[in-house]
Design a protein around this nucleic acid. Sequence first.
DNA 1: TTGAAAGCGCTAACAC
DNA 2: GTGTTAGCGCTTTCAA
Lengths: 338, 338
Amino acid sequence: VSTETYHRNDRGRITLRDIAERVGVSVNTASFVLNGSRSGTRVSEATRKAIWEAAAELGYTPNALARSLRQQRTNIIGLYCNFEFLQARNLFLSDLVGGLQEGCAELGYDLLLHSFGSGSTVEALRASLMDNRVDGLVFYAPPSHGFGSLLAQGPVPVVAVVDLVSEMPSVTVDDIEGGRLQAQYLAARGHRRVMYRQYVRPPVSAQRREAAFKAQASTLGMQVVDAAPFGRFREHSLTPNDLAQLRSGVTAIVCWEDNSAYGTAVELDKLGLRIPGDVEIVGFNGLRTDQPLRWEIPTVEAPWRAAGQTAIRILTDLIDGKDVPRETVLPVGFVPRP
Amino acid sequence: VSTETYHRNDRGRITLRDIAERVGVSVNTASFVLNGSRSGTRVSEATRKAIWEAAAELGYTPNALARSLRQQRTNIIGLYCNFEFLQARNLFLSDLVGGLQEGCAELGYDLLLHSFGSGSTVEALRASLMDNRVDGLVFYAPPSHGFGSLLAQGPVPVVAVVDLVSEMPSVTVDDIEGGRLQAQYLAARGHRRVMYRQYVRPPVSAQRREAAFKAQASTLGMQVVDAAPFGRFREHSLTPNDLAQLRSGVTAIVCWEDNSAYGTAVELDKLGLRIPGDVEIVGFNGLRTDQPLRWEIPTVEAPWRAAGQTAIRILTDLIDGKDVPRETVLPVGFVPRP
DNA sequence: TTGAAAGCGCTAACAC
DNA sequence: GTGTTAGCGCTTTCAA
């Protein structure tokens, strides 16, 4: 079929056609030899060799786009994360995404981090996630967002991480047990009146922690008072009202996650309070760097990396048409840091 | 042409053909209306509307694979990172990748994190990076690796980050100035004899830091002794020989990056030495979490996030056929932490 | 204002 | 053993 219509594409990339022409064989034979299967057919050793040689000489690289278009499969998993970019301060996100990477490496997928302009409509977003570039999608966003259910109805398998999204399989850590453990720890340490510092717009996971903590605290006979919630901007100072509460006999503070807990510690320290002597502070997440900390705050250790990895496993099962559990909950532990 | 051969694809996705059929118009008209340009043509308001309505009703999503195959463009940038996965302990990598994300978001690209099996050959690796899924590639790997030059010859634009790779445009931070600043700081603080702790297999950036530090130290009349290098496994203890050196009048230690510096601090602390009273320790990177640290170690602050962002800008320029500088060096600062 | 046709590069049934 | 043909979904001349 003609050197006529054929011309190298823009970048001078080598295609199956190039090597087929050079060897004097048809494109699909080359395809069969270089890229794998074809029904019950076999090709002679001689042609095979010729084809391989031509491919090596010309530096042939299969076009994954064409292959994917054909096979309806890209071996890419997408990540939709609505919160923030990776950054040094956010240990949690780094571990989570690291887990996703690890899971992908294990199972032979690449991981696509979707960007989205701030001005994009929900519909544009949906389209850009469902445009056939990924075999499956990991979803990490506030459920209130309402976007989860939209995606869940789409043609692409989706798995939620961190926060339960009822419309799709979800991978979470045991926030409820975590909340309980916090209460048990504080009760055992003799605290009778504690303060809870929640995020201003708590995700499902944080709500679960809080509810479980309060239930358990109540069971154990501890009083819980609410502090004003944390705002969005890593601002940890306590309101005058919080301080008044503190002075009313509160001896411990539970924070919805570690950064807030450390921030709280710093604030109390500024006020001349000792930690944990005057006030004990408890957090959630348990992630560490190698840098030695000023205080070791007792916390719930949550396996975020494993959560990422597990999400990938579940997602790939889904892609392969297997059944998967509706919610997968990973166990947490408590680190007392004595 | 015929409902005959046509059948919905596997997942029941809607294609241009579906909506064209429904409206009773040709595929390319639909394409023109929904997805943009066609030479000087225009389509009547009535058909336009019909097409948009059909698309909305059926939930049409353009197939990015098909489009990319056609347009030779994916709007995806790949990241090849040979060191490790993201993780909480590695603040540096999180910031760098965060910068890449930010740059991508700015310029309308998505970011693909390439995975690769441990057993893959160089050729397989090259193929999987050059397989038309990405418009450009960010390269972060040890240059010794020899892989950089291979990629640089390929058809895909590549930009190196962190460590200079001579065969391609590179984005680095000013390691040399960083090394100088360390020396100046220590000299100004009155140190006359300092120890240098390098990584066992230092990347180009670390070599530059060391060389610049030593040159400047020598200029300033400081003696520098080498400690045994750090191994690969976050092991920071000092050898007996290092300790002997220390006792020979060394009053400061420079580490090739902050984690090692903090690790060193911990080790010295175990030995009962005060920091910075007995020994002053200096690091490199300057990344922080919100967690309050036990010591604030003076360090060189390097803009890793900006490096990521810049790498994307340069790469997209390259993709767009523009000329870009061979090496882009971002300024660093010194944080004395008094 | 619209349609027909070719082709991006690869794969898979089905011939011969 | 190997070639023919059709088609993945989209874009883009060119013709009508």
